[in-house]
Nucleic acid binder design. Structure first.
Lengths: 246, 246
DNA sequence: CAAAAAAGAGAGCAGCGCTCTTGCTATGGA
DNA sequence: TCCATAGCAAGAGCGCTGCTCTCTTTTTTG
């Protein structure tokens, strides 16, 4: 017992490392709570420490600065959103009548919207104004890409993009779209790749307008409007409308 | 001379009121300068006062709180953006070959984008995360609506929306669209009204993604991509593509 | 000309992010 | 088993912030 414990700190990780992890999580949880209450601007290291019964300077052993704490929350938020979207798609895909590509697309869009409305301040953190100077640390990239990759996957699975009326791609963008396609979806037509990137940004325009109150005296039935707009986005990326034949 | 001056403070407005206005403007200008440098989070009343050679408490005679200063900057930003968009449209409309509706639409979209890229922190103020608690003062509404109204005007002027393939409007949204249309564009088909609201939000999704760096390792030639996406938006609101016949 | 309104100056309060120093304790090799 | 060491909490403190209060000066007004 003693031999395996002393030389391998990876498996069980002495009580100290374990405590460190637990405290790190507790700090983030408390910070997230305060974030939900008052927004990122009011998030205070001292208040978090106070609530956790520790002194403010002790907190710097876990996060070297306030912005680092925020960065950690940003990464968690991206992951939380990505997971919510992926789970919504998985749940929907598992139901009895397999969903059409448009239905899958709208399901994912609605999951993004629901997550944003449930966590408005965390949404603001990741899709609102960048908080510190301008530094978007590269570590957030994979987490940030999850929703985009999920939408691409849906379109690729559909592969039934049989020449719907897509906006023709200007020559200036063919190279651009080709480069993007090489990265993420080399099997899709360039028109679809470009439309996907645009739809990706436009989706967050819709969500952001609702979360940030821009629809306040304009749109009342926002759920219905969002479903309509998300369906429109699905069409712009080449997913076919439901067959009118019944 | 004396009679007209004493009883009518409206015309010339004693030297005091004039000074007050000038100082108010100077405060906002300096605040805007600091905003452009360091962003809204770092904007400090004390620093503004210091730069203006006054003591911090004196500044509270002009703006009762930091958030009130920010609110003033927000209104100015909305107006600045609205004016930039309107001027771009007016300039384009005045050129020799009168522009097509799509060209006008894209011109306005590009003006919005250009303004946002030139004033990223001010853009973040109005279309990023709301700054204070959540209060969007009603005073900002008219200024905020200018770009939207401009886009509506272009579509109305076109009135050539002869049944392009618009996403059909679900029944649940007919009442909604009818209400919006009654407010702003009672002469447009409901499908176009709904598509306009969606396109309005989606436009700012595109702009926001670029300004906030979400396109960073994704889209390189962002001007070309934006023009492409804005053209797509024009189509979704029923503006006809340029006739392929040459 | 005197009363009143408006503006500036200064001190001060509580809170913030962050640093540095000082003790304490659990950990891992001798 | 013992002990040097590394990790951690605590406290004091610096300079900054938003904001309030009081006091004095300046300008407008009846």
């Amino acid at each position: 017992m003693s031999t395996s414990r002393s030389t391998r700190p990876s498996a069980v990780q002495g009580a100290r490392a374990r405590a460190r992890q637990e405290i790190t999580v507790a700090i983030k949880d408390e910070a997230r709570r305060q974030l939900a209450d008052d927004g990122a601007a009011k998030l205070s290291l001292r208040a978090v420490a106070r609530e956790l019964g520790m002194v403010s300077s002790a907190l710097y052993r876990y996060f070297p600065s306030r912005d680092d704490l925020l960065t950690a929350l940003i990464i968690d938020a991206y992951d939380s959103l990505g997971e919510a979207a992926e789970r919504a798609d998985a749940d929907r895909t598992a139901t009895a009548p397999p969903p059409s590509p448009v239905e899958r697309w709208v399901t994912v869009c609605e999951a993004v919207r629901a997550w944003a409305l449930a966590h408005p301040h965390e949404y603001a953190l990741i899709y609102g104004s960048p908080v510190p100077g301008y530094t978007a640390p590269t570590t957030t990239v994979p987490a940030a890409a999850r929703v985009g990759l999920l939408l691409i996957g849906i379109v690729r699975d559909a592969h039934g993009t049989r020449g719907l009326a897509l906006t023709p791609l200007p020559d200036a963008l063919r190279a651009e779209a080709g480069r993007i396609a090489a990265d993420i979806a080399s099997d899709l037509p360039l028109e679809v790749v470009a439309a996907l990137v645009a739809a990706w940004a436009q989706l967050f325009g819709l969500v952001g307008f609702e979360v940030f109150g821009q629809f306040n005296r304009v749109v009342e039935d926002r759920a219905a409007f969002f479903a309509y707009a998300a369906t429109g986005l699905a069409h712009t990326v080449g997913l076919l409308p439901a067959p009118p034949a019944k």
